[in-house]
Design a protein around this nucleic acid. Sequence first.
RNA 1: CGGGGUGUAGCGCAGAUGGUAGCGCGCUUGGUUCGGGACCAAGAGGCCCGGAGUUCAAAUCUCCGCACUCCGACCA
Length: 478
Amino acid sequence: MAKEKRVEQITDMEVDFAQWYTDICRKAELVEYASVKGFTILRPYGYAIWENMQRIMDAEFKKTGHENVAMPVLIPESLLKKEGELVNGFAPEVAWVTHGGSEELEERLAFRPTSETMFCDHWSRVLHSWRELPMLYNQWCSVIRWEKTTRPFLRSREFWWQEGHTIHETAAEAKAETEQQLNCYADFFEKVLAIPVVRGRKTDKEKFAGAEATYTVECLMKDHKALQGATSHYFGDKFSRAYDVTFTGRDNTLQYPFQTSWGSTTRMIGAVIMAHGDNNGLVLPPAVAPIQVIVLPVAQHKPGVLEAANALRERLLAAGLRVKVDDSDNSMGWKCAQYEMKGVPLRVEIGPRDIENGQCVLVRRNDGEKTAVPLDALESAAEEQLRLVYEGMYEKAKKNLDEHIFAASSLEEAKALQEKNGGFIKTMWCGELQCELDMKEKAGMSSRCMPLEQEKLGEVCACCGKPAKHMIYWGVAY
RNA sequence: CGGGGUGUAGCGCAGAUGGUAGCGCGCUUGGUUCGGGACCAAGAGGCCCGGAGUUCAAAUCUCCGCACUCCGACCA
């Protein structure tokens, strides 16, 4: 594909990445602002991406025995406050319901910022025996967090997500669940969204309020800033004890179950935009694209063209693909630009010349590569091209990640590398909070994670020079 | 929550020194086009973000809000 810009409505990412991002959100018709500050409307095209993500993830969750439930949206203040750390972590951003009709409520009710408390309260009443464990629950819902500044998908006061909550008989089982779900997310990012990730554990400073350990999949955007993709927590029996969730064990003693939670959100749509998009707009991974193939009839007024285009659609539909034909009166150029902006992975062009030659032309969104294919090979060719789109997207994103991980042995070096290249800066770290604070203050970076695959870069902490305990990734994060 | 910027038609923007609104794109209808954002013609569409002031008169001046946006601090 020629490199010149074809979509004037979208600011070039090199000129202003933030504006480029916002332009795509609006111009690709993913999202619109609502009338309450910080709230957004997911428009049909944006919501369809989310539905595809949901469908695929939900199937994965169910394969490993998880069941969906629906919890109330309101949490009594007294219940929310039972676990100190969680409350402290979320207190500044909880929205409250204080009135029912015109009457003031006796007790304030919180809009859920997350549902650990509701699940624990429920379990405290329904769990009796070790035979009922594990309980592997998930819910798809929205939550409210009164954020101070907001951006579409990346940070809004209401966002849609799934939150998995499980309780187990033993710590080992719960830890295995935490790891399993982290890997489930990592696979989803890499195999479905074509975004390579770094798996790791969060520092105490960055972990979820109330968790014993928080794990994360971190990804890198095209501006070389980091984005946390999804998260998986191990709680130990902390919440069980706080909420009095107990069961009678195999040995007839009263025990506290071990708990996990894990979540992923509509922020993943933001990750897709910033990991794959270009100056012509969105580039969608085929697996979540609402339209996987757009069929464009060329010179559609000429006899047979529209019929041929519709026939291609029928065949691709029958092959299980999500397909549309655009037979509007807009010009070919307009249509090309339009579907590029919306990130449709594959375009099929068919016109009089093609029909004469018994072929059609397939064009990949990610690299603009055109391939003429015989009409009778359409289905296999389309599937092949979609596979190549995925592979091309993944390789490009992987290259971006691999080329933006730098090792540093001092804070100054880390700072210089970040300023020059962005990306992840890896160093050794002593484990002390003070060094994280220093890195934030002096180099503008927060710790992203301690990767599960550790490397020994040296003996001492890059910040303080004391003996190092972990290798850690730093970055500028969304 | 601190610091900048911006709010005028669906979108992008003009509207000096105050006099009740315009352009481009888009939209509607009809026609000609159609292999990378076509053209002609005729139309529709505005409590100029909101509220108070000042004034004979406010999109324009003054306050106070609100929203969006960018940069920080906080978070998925």
